[in-house]
Computed example of a mutant assay.
Amino acid sequence: MASLKRFEGKVAVVTASTQGIGFSIAERLGLEGASVVISSRRQKNVDEAAEALRKKGIEVLGLVCHVLNAEQRKNLIEKTVEKYGKIDVLVSNAAVNPSVSTILETKESVLDKLWEINVKAAILLLKDAAPHLKKGGSIVLISSIAGYQPDSGLAMYGVTKTALLGLTKALAAEMAPEIRVNCVAPGFVPTHFSDFLTSNESIVSASQANNKNGLLERTLLKRLGTTNDMAAATAFLASDDASYVTGETIIVSGGMQSRL
């Protein structure tokens, strides 16, 4: 990885990027030469993540951004352009799963939150960023294997991630030929975000496939994914190595069943 410098001179914005998959994506792009802009809802998290990246020699700008906050979204883009003059890569990674209910038992307020953060906010962020994306730029949306096979306890979350698969196709057509739009659908990756899958008793009891051993058995490679696995796939799609790839989703799941 250290020898790859596919993003020299490029600027990459990654949302929800102070921990987990988002942080690893920002780190990978930065180690390959990009100036990275990271964001999170909390200043403390932003400061700590930015410092960790700087210690690795990465040029980084850290900003607070709750993706549902229009002013903060606008600030994220404006501050990026103010400092770096452009945007070459945008990775939309922000997501929530505030419910373990079945779809028909999910409260309306939770349905709204899932839709607004997981889908709507990505569209609004792209509306803000589009005028500043350089020709030849790349957008990567982070979906989930749950978009193909929603599990119990993940059903409505999975539906919003399915929406991102369609959004990828639609945006790729709309933004071609100047901008490429692709998607990464991670399998199960142990992170703080996914802890609830193996710790929530109602999910595990409802589907033994959601405990660690069950998840391992569902993969052909017999291991869980890592944040670095997801970062590598994202870096490929964002780079010129994927210059003839747009409108596609790469599933990074160790062979876990996925396709619709």
Rank of each mutant, 00 (worst) to 15 (best):
K5W: 10
R6G: 15
E8V: 12
V11H: 03
T15F: 12
A16N: 08
Q19E: 11
R28A: 08
G33E: 10
A34P: 05
A34M: 07
S40A: 06
R42M: 12
Q43G: 10
K44S: 13
N45A: 05
E51P: 13
K56D: 10
E59D: 08
E59S: 12
G62E: 04
H66Q: 08
V67H: 02
N69C: 06
N69G: 06
L76E: 02
K79S: 08
Y84A: 07
K86T: 07
D88E: 02
D88A: 08
V89E: 02
A94W: 09
A94G: 04
P98F: 09
V100E: 10
I103D: 06
E105D: 07
E105P: 05
L111Y: 12
L111F: 12
L114V: 08
V119Q: 05
K120L: 13
A121T: 03
A122D: 14
A122Y: 11
L125R: 01
D128I: 06
G136N: 06
I142A: 00
S143A: 05
Q149K: 14
P150H: 05
P150F: 05
D151M: 12
G153D: 01
T160F: 04
L164M: 11
L164R: 03
T168C: 05
M175L: 13
E178Q: 14
I179E: 01
I179R: 05
V181T: 02
N182L: 00
N182A: 04
A185G: 04
A185P: 15
F193V: 00
S207P: 06
Q208H: 07
A209F: 09
N210A: 15
L215M: 11
R218I: 15
T219G: 00
T226Y: 01
T227K: 07
M230Y: 08
M230D: 14
A231I: 00
A232W: 03
D240W: 00
E248I: 15
T249E: 02
T249V: 08
T249D: 00
T249A: 01
V252D: 00
L260D: 10
